[in-house]
Design a protein around this nucleic acid. Sequence first.
DNA 1: CATGAATGAGAATTCATTCAT
DNA 2: GATGAATGAATTCTCATTCAT
Lengths: 210, 210, 210, 210
Amino acid sequence: MTADEEDGRVRRAAERRSRRRVQLLQAAQRVFSNKGYHATSVADILAEASASRGTFYLYFPSKWAVFEALLEQMFQHISRAVRRVRVGEGSEPVVDQMNGNVCRVLDVVHAHRELTIILLREAVALDIDLDRKVAAFYGRLCQLVEGGLTLGQSMGLVRACDTRMVAHCVLGSMKEVVLDWLTASDPLDRDELAREILAYNLHGIYGGTG
Amino acid sequence: MTADEEDGRVRRAAERRSRRRVQLLQAAQRVFSNKGYHATSVADILAEASASRGTFYLYFPSKWAVFEALLEQMFQHISRAVRRVRVGEGSEPVVDQMNGNVCRVLDVVHAHRELTIILLREAVALDIDLDRKVAAFYGRLCQLVEGGLTLGQSMGLVRACDTRMVAHCVLGSMKEVVLDWLTASDPLDRDELAREILAYNLHGIYGGTG
Amino acid sequence: MTADEEDGRVRRAAERRSRRRVQLLQAAQRVFSNKGYHATSVADILAEASASRGTFYLYFPSKWAVFEALLEQMFQHISRAVRRVRVGEGSEPVVDQMNGNVCRVLDVVHAHRELTIILLREAVALDIDLDRKVAAFYGRLCQLVEGGLTLGQSMGLVRACDTRMVAHCVLGSMKEVVLDWLTASDPLDRDELAREILAYNLHGIYGGTG
Amino acid sequence: MTADEEDGRVRRAAERRSRRRVQLLQAAQRVFSNKGYHATSVADILAEASASRGTFYLYFPSKWAVFEALLEQMFQHISRAVRRVRVGEGSEPVVDQMNGNVCRVLDVVHAHRELTIILLREAVALDIDLDRKVAAFYGRLCQLVEGGLTLGQSMGLVRACDTRMVAHCVLGSMKEVVLDWLTASDPLDRDELAREILAYNLHGIYGGTG
DNA sequence: CATGAATGAGAATTCATTCAT
DNA sequence: GATGAATGAATTCTCATTCAT
C-alpha cells in the first residue's frame, strides 16, 4: 500500500466515524427533545439510531456526554448569532444591530428547534456540572447584553437602570417568548415577532402620554 | 374515658399527624431545592426528615406526590399574590396596583425561596402530567397579564402590541429576574428590584429622546 | 365488689373477648376465601372487621395465626363428620355407613363453604409448617379410608388392591368433586351428588358385562 | 467476514441465548418446586442459576412470567400425553387406550417431576389470570374425560352416571395419586400404579358379589 | 383494652455501563 | 470496528409487626 492509499483509507475511516457520530447525535437530539433527558434511556437512542449498545459507547463515554455535546452545539449556534453592538462611524444604526441580533437568534432557534427546546426545558437542574456550563453560557449572554446597555447608557441611548438586572429581564423575556414561539400551534412570523420583541424591550408596554 | 377526653385525644392525634406531614414536606422541599427532583431519592428525604421509609409512604403515595404537593402550594401562594388590575372610580392608580402585584410576588417568592427555586428550575419536563399542571399555572398567569394589557389598551394606557406575546415577555422577565434575585450573592433590596422591574416593563430600556 | 360481682365481670370480659375474636376470624375467613392468603393483607382483614391494627395483634400473634386457626376449625368440622366404618352385629349396613360419611362431609363443606375453599385452594405450599399440618390432616383422613378398605378386604367386601393408593384416589376424587360442587353455578343437590360419589367409588365407571 | 462466518456467528449467538433461557427456566423450576412460588424470590432463582439480576430481566419480564412459562410447558407435556379414546374397526381395545393414556401421563409427570409438583401444589390462587389458565387447562382435561365417558355410555361400556361429575372424580383421583406417587419415599413402579388406577376407575373398590 | 402512627427488612424492577466474542 | 449479553448498584414501594399514647 502506498502512502497515498494509506492516507485515503485513514481519511475515509475518519469520515465514516464522524458520520456515525453525527447520526447518533441526531438520533439523541430527536429523542431528548421528545421525551426529555431523564425519560430517555440509552436504549431509546439506540433504537432511534439503529445502532447497538457497544457502538454507542464507542462514540460517547456516557449518555450524559451526548447531551453535553448537543448543548455545546447549541451554545455555538447562539453565540455566533449574537454580536456585540458597535457604535461609531460606519456602524449600522444601533437599533438595526439589535434587530439583527434578535432576527439571527430567532433564525437559529428555529433552525434548531429541537436543540433549543432541550436547552430551554431540560438543561436545568440535571447535574451540578452542567448547571455550571449552562449558567456560564447564559452568563456570557447576559454580559453581552449588559455591556450593550452600559454602552448605550454612556451614549444617552439607554435610560438609567440596574444594567445587570435589566439584562436578566431581556434574557428572560427572550427565553419565554422563544419557547412559546417554538411550541405554539400557530406561531407569528419571524419579522413580526422580532418587531414585537424589540418594541417591548425598547419601550415597554406603556403607551400613555406620560 | 369521657367524651371530652376522647375529643382531646382525637384532636391531638390529628395535630400530630398533620405536623408529621408538614415535617416531611419541608424536608422534601429542602432536598429537592438542593439536589433537584431526579437526584433526590426518597432515602434522601427520609434522612433529612429523620423518618423511616414506611412513614413516608404513610403520608404520601409516592415521591412524585410530595413534589406535586409542594408545587401545588407554590401555585396557591403566587395565585394569591397576583391580583387582577381594576380600573374605575375608587380604584388605586393602575401603576400602584401593578407595583403592588410585583411587590407581593417578590415577597412570596422570597418567603418561599426553596419552593420557588423548585418551581423555576425543576418543574419542567419531569412528567407529562406535571408539565400540564405547570403549563396551566403559567397559562393562568399569562392570561391575567394579557387581560391587564388588553384592558390597558382599551384605556389608552398600553400601546398597541400583540398582547399574548408581550404577556410572555413579562412573565419571562419576571421568572429570570426572580431566579437571579433568589440565588444572587448580594441581592438588591425588594423595593429597588420592584422599581426596576416596573420601569423595565413600562418603559423598556430606551432613554433616548427619539 | 363481691366475689360474685367480680366473677361476673370477669366472665363478661371473657365473653366480650371471645366475641371479638370470632368477629376477626369471620372477617378473615371472608377475605381469605375471596382473595387468597397472599393477596390478603392484614389491612384487608381490619377493614372487613372494622378493627384496628393494634386490636388484631391483641387477639392473634400474626396474620399466619388467623389462617391456622381457620384451618384448625375446618379440620375439626371434617374430622367430626367422618366416622370409622363399623362391622358386626347391630351395625348399620356398611354401604349406609359410607353413605352417611359422604353426606355428612358434604353437609359440613356446604355449611362452611368459605373455609372449605380456603382449605382446598390455599392450604398448600404456603409454609413448611402448615404443609405439615395439612399433610397430617389429609394423612389422618387417608388412614381412616385405608383402614376401612383393609377391613372391607378382610370381610370380602373390598376387592384386592393397594389400599394406600386407592385411599388417595378416594380422597382425591372427593376433593375435586367438592371444589367443583361448591363453586359450580348450578350444583347438583346433595343426595344425588352423594349417590354419584358412592357409585363411582364402589363400582367405578365400568358398565359393561365383562 | 464472509457471509458464512457471519451466519455461524449469528447462529451460535442465538444458541447461547436460548441456552441461557433454559438455564434460567430450570433454575426457577428447581426453586419454585422446593419453596413454592411466593417463598421464592428472584434472588433465589439468580443464585440457583448463577446469574445476575439484570440477566434475569433480560430473558423474562417478571418473576411471574417465568412461572407462567413453566406452567405452559407442563400444559404442553400433559396435553400431548392424553389422547382421545377412539372406537371403531382397527382401533385398539378401549381399555388398552385408557391404559396408554394413564401410562403416558405417569411417564410425563415422572419425567417432569418438579414441574408437576408446581402445577399440583402452586398453580392455584396465585393470580386471577393464572387461575383462569389453570382452570382452562383442567377444564380441557375434564372435557376429554367427559367426552370419553359419554362415548363409552353410548357403546354400553360405561354405566349411567353424571358424566361431568364423574370426570371430576377421575381427574381428582389422578391428581392426588400422582402427587403422592411423586413425593412418596418408596413409590410403586409405574405399571403397577397404572394398573391400580385403571382398576379403581373402572371397577371402584367393591369386590363383593353384589 | 384499644388505637393507629411508626418501623424497616425485603421485594421487584430498571438501566447505564462493561466486555467477551 | 461492531455487537449485544451480562452486570449489579441503586431505586421505589409494600406490609407484617411493634409500641407509645
